[in-house]
């Protein structure tokens, strides 16, 4: 039968921490122990040593220092032996003691402790992992800086790339297959060694731009051109890039070939950077051939870029 006022909060039994006085040389904690405690040094000196020869001292504890929080709260292994360097006084917060104290805390404080713990754990983990989110983009960028004229030893290439990005080898191999499928790289074999060559560095750069647009949820500009713009592009690619004209003259020039082209198309062409202003006279423009050819290449190799071969 339950008696008493049910609205009264239940009184939690508090298990106090254990206070101990230990002599110099006493082993306070050994990694083989099943018990997990937080050790707070009240007085004296403790040392943490490695458990294998030459049993180097990892750190020394002074009064006020504590150890074992991660072992108790996060189950992280504490791999050193802790012993008293001098006669010392210690406080041991056992698992039961901590649990009883945590139960008395307001929920938000408990959540705060868990959150700090989780964030620390996540930061430690992410410090050893790759930062790269799109590994294929990263590999394409890396290879776009390699000479098109050289066959690179594939194993060396993977080693260098993994060192730069910390991307695991198995992921790199998968991404290489993806580039190979798209015909962006070529593999060959010589003396039982595999070599890799970037077929066209600019095409790899176009591919990285395409992937970046995808990642940002944007359309890749070359693939949203209207038919008329595509026709203008091809036309401009055949023209001389050294000729300079002002805006109205270029509009007139385009209208001769494309009578339906609106005047506003000129603004589009400038936005697409198919024309560049002269350095000395911003009223005069010339065809930006490298940009025009970039768009043409992107269109020509659309199936490679999209990976729908």
């Amino acid at each position: 039968m339950i008696t008493g006022d049910s609205r009264q909060p239940v009184r939690q039994q508090v298990i106090p921490p254990t206070h101990q006085s230990v002599k110099a040389g006493f082993v306070v904690y050994s990694p083989g122990s099943e018990e997990r405690n937080i050790v707070i040094l009240e007085d004296g000196e403790l040392v943490a040593r490695e458990t294998t020869p030459p049993y180097s001292t990892v750190f020394t504890m002074r009064p006020g220092d504590l150890v074992g929080v991660a072992a108790l709260l996060e189950r992280e292994p504490f791999k050193y032996e802790l012993s008293a360097a001098k006669d010392s006084k210690i406080t041991l917060v056992t698992e039961d003691c901590m649990e009883s104290e945590l139960k008395r805390l307001p929920l938000w404080l408990l959540a705060l402790i868990r959150s700090i713990s989780a964030k620390t754990h996540q930061l430690k983990r992410s410090a050893v992992e790759t930062r790269v989110q799109n590994t294929l983009l990263s590999l394409a960028e890396y290879l776009s800086h390699k000479s098109e004229k050289t066959d690179f030893n594939l194993a060396e290439l993977i080693r260098e790339f993994s060192f730069l990005t910390k991307i695991p080898t198995i992921t790199v191999e998968e991404d290489l297959k993806s580039l190979l499928r798209r015909h962006l790289i070529k593999l060959s074999e010589k003396n039982k060694r595999i070599f890799c060559r970037a077929i066209d560095s600019e095409l790899l750069r176009i591919f990285t731009d395409y992937l970046r647009c995808n990642d940002n949820g944007e359309s890749f500009v070359p693939y949203k051109l209207t038919l008329e713009l595509k026709q203008i592009l091809v036309y401009l690619s055949t023209e001389d890039e050294t000729i300079s004209k002002n805006g109205p003259e270029w509009i007139q020039f385009i209208k001769q070939k494309f009578p339906n082209a609106a005047v506003t198309q000129w603004i589009n062409l400038l936005k697409l950077e198919w024309f560049s202003a002269e350095k000395n006279n911003s009223d005069l423009f010339h065809i930006n051939k490298s940009k025009v050819l970039y768009f043409l290449k992107a269109l020509r190799y659309e199936t490679n870029i999209r990976g729908v071969l």
């Binding site: 008395r104 805390l105 402790i113 930061l123």
Partner: peptide
Amino acid sequence: ALEKSPAWFKSIMQFLTGRLAIAQSNK
């Protein structure tokens, strides 16, 4: 809330906070 807890608990909070700051700086 910390006043109501034993003194050692405050040390643990300080330890956890310091460790997080070190982890952030190291990262």
